[in-house]
Amino acid sequence: MLKIEDLHVAVDGAEILKGLTLEVPAGEVHAIMGPNGSGKSTLSHTIAGRDAYEVLSGGVTLDGDNLLALDPNERAAKGLFLSFQHPIEIPGVQTMNFIRTAMNAQRKARSEEEISAADFLKSIRAKAKLVGLNDAKIKRPFNVGFSGGEKKRMEMLQLVMFEPRFAIMDETDSGLDIDALKMVGDVVNELRDPSRGFLVITHYQRLLDYIKPDAVHVLADGRIVKSGGPELAAELERSGYDQFIEAA
């Protein structure tokens, strides 16, 4: 499904990813853990196509499609979703209008029919309830005046609305209380599917108590330095990242 091969990426001339290789097969959830500054967010933004991240060499494909050749919106239309660590606010744009506009833009790019207003309304109301956002919140300007936790719920609402083929969760757990963490776990578990993949980026093991990963990778100094099963997350929680920083 998602294949990253020997990826080298620079930001402002400084190389951050230094030969990262990773494969997430369809139907699996992989976690990436790593200390601050190891390149976790650089990886998520590069996969999603942010301009400021310069790919020096290497490749990223999703089901064989070369993502690096596509604009960010084309990647989204291919089914790539990024749950942002720091979601933005858009004053003046109503949440429901925004999500519907975005859904229809993706559908149009895939030559699919637009979602009808009635179907959309029914769907977003049910799904907002699922992620713990009430009707009033989805009628307000997008994320305006929302707490950090509510913004993460809004990311989860979009995840369930878009039903992407592949989702990257960039530190979705930061700033979340236990109830919200559980909600995130429920949403991801509900969406787990033999044809869908997830990459969960996190500092801590706690989110992985709710989302059981198929594999855990340690990212340090721009490279995957160790890969293992779920037990690796627990080990990291006990012994920290120091050993990997030194090794890198």
Binding site: H45, A48, G49, R50, D51, A52, D71, P72, N73, R75, A76, A77, F81, L82, F84, H86, P87, I88, I90, F98, T101, A102, M103, A105, Q106, A109, Q158, F162
Partner: peptide, 15 residues
Amino acid sequence: DDDALFYLRQRGLDE
């Protein structure tokens, strides 16, 4: 805002 533009494009809107 570049962050806002990138966010919207990641959601599927062209530039």
